[in-house]
Design a protein around this nucleic acid. Structure first.
Lengths: 226, 226
DNA sequence: ACAAAAGTATGACAAATATCATATTTTATA
DNA sequence: TATAAAATATGATATTTGTCATACTTTTGT
């Protein structure tokens, strides 16, 4: 069983407010999982009874709309926690969490977390601030969806992926998304997304090499995102 | 200066967890405001240094998108608190709050609220749960924006307005929104919204009498919203 | 290594939605 | 109350986006 004290990603999450004793407590009750690319950590409607701390790999939080299409609401990277909202609201999850890469996550039972809420104010403030930041992003995202064109949203999303997940040595985006997944972030038909990527490629603002994407003219992309 | 103890709307907000002593504390430091229809309580980018408790009247939380159009993110009714997110994140507000009706609101300084966070766990859990609920709604709203047609969103919004704000004796929706405001909730051009309302009227699912709207066939509307 | 499946790409077309013009009605204001 | 201003309504048209068909490319599994 891994020691939470030595886990670096802890430093990037609300858990950084926990002291040695509290970390030992978590280490003794947590469960570690390996999740393969494409597999779910949990699915919409499940009751999780705790939260997941992402140690390695990226996952998508998505929701199935009534027309059968998946909408990606957020991408979650190492250091972030999953399932906080449904734990606090005491409801089933309203989003599915599905691995985009092979992942390592730790499950921490609800009872532990709730105990920390009562005893460690810094911790609960951290959690609150995280959820507030999610709320702000969700509101901004909502406005983009409502007011921006697909082209603008694609430009915006490419810049977001660049800034959030970085690039490889060859300048290509580190995060690998299928065209369908990219469309699910943007909220458009897969063909429309592919077409626009082609256009961006032809006009030189990005380069497509297989499914690898590199941003060639970020200023132009920023202008296109408005 | 009004007594918070006797204020009924308190019971509907996170503030219901406060005890007598805490309520007296708030009563002595709060400021009451009357806001006229159309006036802002605060605007995007302002630093508020506290929260507002809505005593009477409804307001919209909206965000100006780069194309110059307003997007309404949420409607806030009596009993709800405003400005929690930016207070907790310690950031300027990212939304404007503008009265849709004449309003009465009370301003409570940040320092008071933060003190309660430290001393009253029930209160901070209430605030957390409210923000979690806002986050869930924002995610759902985002999926609607991305995946549903304007027609579906209009049907959905009309039902929401009915269920949330109720109807007058004559069956018309209590909340009065201009066509432009309704469009800003749905995220569409005003003309498109007007056109669809006309269609709904012609097909008998709603009735338009001046700017009053009544829902005639809620089941049909539910089907239309999918 | 090869067949099947999945993913990517592109054209043709249809549907949804926005924009612009203009008329009509309602509301605000001198 | 008269008049201007704002809001609502509707038509004509342009633009955006989705859908369906099909070809090509990459990945997967045996």
């Amino acid at each position: 069983m891994g020691k939470c004290e030595q886990c670096i990603v802890r430093e990037f999450s609300s858990l950084k407010a926990l002291n040695k004793e509290e970390l030992l407590k978590i280490a003794s009750c947590k469960t570690s999982y390996t999740i393969k690319k494409g597999e779910p950590i949990f699915e919409e409607g499940e009751i999780t009874n705790g939260i997941y701390c992402v140690k390695d790999g990226v996952c998508k939080l998505s929701k199935l709309s009534q027309n059968g299409k998946d909408q990606i609401v957020k991408l979650v990277k190492p250091g972030e926690l999953l399932g906080q909202r449904s734990m606090i609201s005491d409801e089933p999850t309203n989003l599915s969490a599905i691995a985009l890469e092979d992942m390592q996550v730790c499950f921490i039972p609800k009872s532990e977390i709730l105990a920390f809420f009562n005893n460690n104010n810094q911790f609960s403030m951290n959690v609150m601030r995280t959820i507030c930041s999610d709320l702000k992003e969700a509101d901004d995202h909502m406005v983009s969806m409502a007011q921006k064109s697909v082209k603008e949203r694609l430009a915006e999303t490419l810049l977001y992926l660049h800034d959030t997940f970085g690039v490889n040595a060859d300048g290509t985006l580190k995060i690998q998304l299928s065209r369908e997944e990219l469309s699910s972030i943007i909220g458009t038909a897969t063909e429309s997304c592919i077409r626009l990527l082609s256009d961006f490629n032809k006009s030189g603002v990005i380069t497509l090499t297989g499914k690898k994407i590199s941003l060639k003219d970020k200023n132009q992309l920023r202008k296109m995102a408005e």
